[in-house]
Design a protein around this nucleic acid. Sequence first.
DNA 1: TCTGAAAATGGACCTTT
DNA 2: AAAGGTCCATTTTCAGA
Lengths: 155, 155
Amino acid sequence: MLDNYDLKLLSEIQRNADTPQSELASRINLSPAAVNRRLRRLADEGVIDRYTAILAPEKVGYPLTIVSMIEVESEQIDLLDAMKRTFEACPQIQQCYYVAGEWDFVLIFSVRHMEEYNDLTRQLFFANNNVKRFKTLVTMSRVKAGLDIPVAPSA
Amino acid sequence: MLDNYDLKLLSEIQRNADTPQSELASRINLSPAAVNRRLRRLADEGVIDRYTAILAPEKVGYPLTIVSMIEVESEQIDLLDAMKRTFEACPQIQQCYYVAGEWDFVLIFSVRHMEEYNDLTRQLFFANNNVKRFKTLVTMSRVKAGLDIPVAPSA
DNA sequence: TCTGAAAATGGACCTTT
DNA sequence: AAAGGTCCATTTTCAGA
């Protein structure tokens, strides 16, 4: 379904989505038109979910990244769904994973300052009966942050 | 430093970096040229870190997202730096946070299957003397995954 | 794959605050 | 000076042959 040209293309546009198609074309040895068709196809098929700009959090006033983990009281499906919807709707929550293991949810927050996080814990955790306990890990350094997938073309 | 035009612009291009500058211009009531200048400035200043394509992990053969947490043996600076460099270099690690709290590192992996993760734990964790213990949380559902920062323009 | 039209980008230059 | 607007050249995209 995805051939090596696709994989190389995906790899390139993950690194930099601003690269002109003509430049991509010469890098992977294909004509610009072929690159254009492939990119359109990959977007149509949903392989490319979306194009986005990644901002530097500190430069836009969101210097604090926080990881928190939640254990729920009940795994009843409608309770879980309600929680998922709430987390999804919260703009300071960048990522939310429903996981198996010692915890049930892992959340990544991007906030302006501790107080903002504190307020959010009140709204999202303390006010929610289904949150049994949670733990907060404050990030001291974002060693690596991206959503890149290692789509290396096979040799 | 960043005015409301900048914030609106950043908000738009986080949602969709493919929007033509002319379209952005009409949305925020500015000329296309002004938008062009601002985008360039924001990129030059590093406010915009980079443009990227976000892929659908399942569609490129990486259906498994795993969160792991590590406690280190020693927080000696050169040992930590070595670990950071190792994690940074590992393509399956999307994100690495150095945190304060019960754990020292939080990692987000994107892998093809459990075996791949298993191999990585051997290389990265078991083979490293400075890893005291680690915990694995396997994602059942990626409720929300992005790096968007809620740069809402002030009213 | 090639060619060309349409669209988008980005510079030059002038005007406003 | 700093930033906006208009206009125009160049580059890029993208469809038809």
